[in-house]
Design a protein around this nucleic acid. Structure first.
Lengths: 149, 149
DNA sequence: GCGCCTTTAATAGCAAGCTATGATAATGCC
DNA sequence: GGCATTATCATAGCTTGCTATTAAAGGCGC
């Protein structure tokens, strides 16, 4: 196998997933930009719309993103008046993250934008195919999530 | 529809594709890192293994990446002794990009690493399902590639 | 209580993506 | 030939990822 240098970009899973991921990010940036929100902030908002008062590392765990990445994103979100940092009186190590009124108010419109991007990507798909596609994505995520090898 | 704030991360196409893309990038970084190559350099190498002597903007066009991004990546690749920059005598605007011996020699091992990552992601898939999955990725890429809207 | 381990966060520094803008060279029209 | 347009590249500055390291606080064993 691996006959010669036959590696076609357009048939490589990793290449295609990476490209599609960038297209999603671009589309989200264009749409969320109207609200002053960048695409990397959206998953953090999704978490906080569900539950406020959690720590930075809890957000990192749920999103499978490293803690310093979350720290930087939260810093920008604080600068943009989306989140608040509150020292936990019971545990002086941790800082509890909450939403500002502005952050809460964006829930409905931003979710609508994200749904629109998702819909556009699969608008010509059968409903069953969308479900199957997501199920397969999940299997691949599980396959790559383990330790290196 | 859009019943209430029911937006589940784990059912969102964009979220899942983004997560899977990061997992691919992490896996590639671990594997290519052994050769001193970072994941963003790999698509550029794929292009150059096919054809040397093309310009920066041609690479950007083929990969659907912005020109300044390619410029920065190429600068790091030159620093790492992977590519060469040669002024085109026939057109003083453009700079022709080529590979060093080191860059050429990496073709076989790096492609093997990338194939291993792709295989790991879909090792429990039927061959037909892999093909179908990639075909659907391609359809989604086409759907999102057009102008904003 | 003390020392060690774990957990949480901060910081530094790098890679890879983006937009916006500017410099310079080539092209093409008149 | 001269001027406007286009093409190519460079640069600045931003966001979002990453790793590695450090500091500080909490928890546990003894």
């Amino acid at each position: 196998m691996t006959t010669e240098g036959e590696f076609r970009r357009e048939d490589s899973l990793g290449y295609m997933v990476n490209l599609l991921g960038r297209l999603f990010a671009r589309a989200l940036d264009r749409r969320l930009g109207k609200y002053g929100v960048a695409h990397g902030q959206f998953p953090v908002l999704l978490i906080l719309w569900e539950q406020e008062g959690i720590t930075q590392s809890e957000i990192a765990r749920r999103l499978d993103i490293e803690q310093p990445t979350v720290a930087n994103t939260l810093k920008r979100m604080e600068r943009d008046d989306l989140v608040t940092f509150a020292a936990d009186p019971g545990n002086r190590r941790q800082v509890l993250i909450g939403l500002t009124e502005k952050g809460r108010a964006l829930k409905t419109p931003l979710i609508a934008e994200a749904l629109a991007v998702n819909d556009r990507a699969v608008e010509d798909f059968e409903a069953a195919d969308r479900v199957q596609f997501i199920a397969r994505l999940r299997r691949m995520i599980d396959a790559l999530s383990g330790p290196a090898e």
